[in-house]
């Protein structure tokens, strides 16, 4: 099982690197899907099949599809890539990359310093998840419910169809009257 973990981690990391370096946004999103699948495999190898499937259903299956959907309609081409290059001045990327470098350093230090703790592996029973969700973390579930409800109401408001005229000729007629 450990090998599975390492293989899927390497796949996930490699895919994520590819996501960042791709110029074509659809290719980047494809690698993002691969990365999500890798992460799902990691969850599976750590004994959390429920989270793994949810990762695939929600992230890989729904959210990235919507991303691709939007990217397809944007029709990004060479000009937008050039435009993007203009945004990427050193002063914009130098600050975040220093911070990230510090984090990476910390990670490396922790990886080398820490003693080898065996990976905890226990399969999470499916029944435990709802029990803890609706027992221990019920407040969090309710709050998420509020948040999603607000999102749905907002989307419904934005997407409301306010069509007054069936046709532009009818509109002119009505204005004339």
């Amino acid at each position: 099982m450990n090998y599975l973990f390492y293989i899927s981690s390497i796949v996930a990391i490699a895919a994520t690197v590819m996501v960042i370096t791709r110029h074509q946004p659809v290719h980047a999103l494809l690698y993002l899907v691969v990365s999500f699948l890798g992460v799902a495999m990691i969850f599976l190898s750590l004994g959390a099949p429920f989270v793994a499937t949810l990762e695939i259903i929600l992230y890989a299956g729904a959210i990235i599809v919507l991303f691709i959907f939007v990217v397809m309609m944007l029709n990004l081409g060479r000009e937008s890539a050039i435009q993007e290059k203009q945004w990427m001045q050193p002063k914009t990327w130098i600050g975040p990359s220093i911070l990230t470098a510090i984090l990476l350093g910390e990670l490396l230090v922790l990886l080398t310093m820490g003693g080898s703790v065996p990976m905890p592996q226990q399969t999470v029973d499916l029944k435990k998840i709802p029990l803890s969700l609706y027992g221990e973390y019920v407040i969090a579930v309710e709050l998420t419910g509020f948040l999603l409800m607000a999102g749905i109401v907002g989307a419904a408001h934005i997407g409301r169809h306010k069509k007054k005229y069936l046709h532009r000729f009818l509109k002119q007629e009505e204005e004339a009257v």
Binding site: F50, A52, T53, I56, I57, A60, G61, L126
Partner: peptide, 12 residues
């Protein structure tokens, strides 16, 4: 996770 796996694959 039987059915969930089926749903995941069909969503892919």
């Amino acid at each position: 996770v039987g059915i969930l796996f089926f749903l995941a694959m069909s969503s892919l």
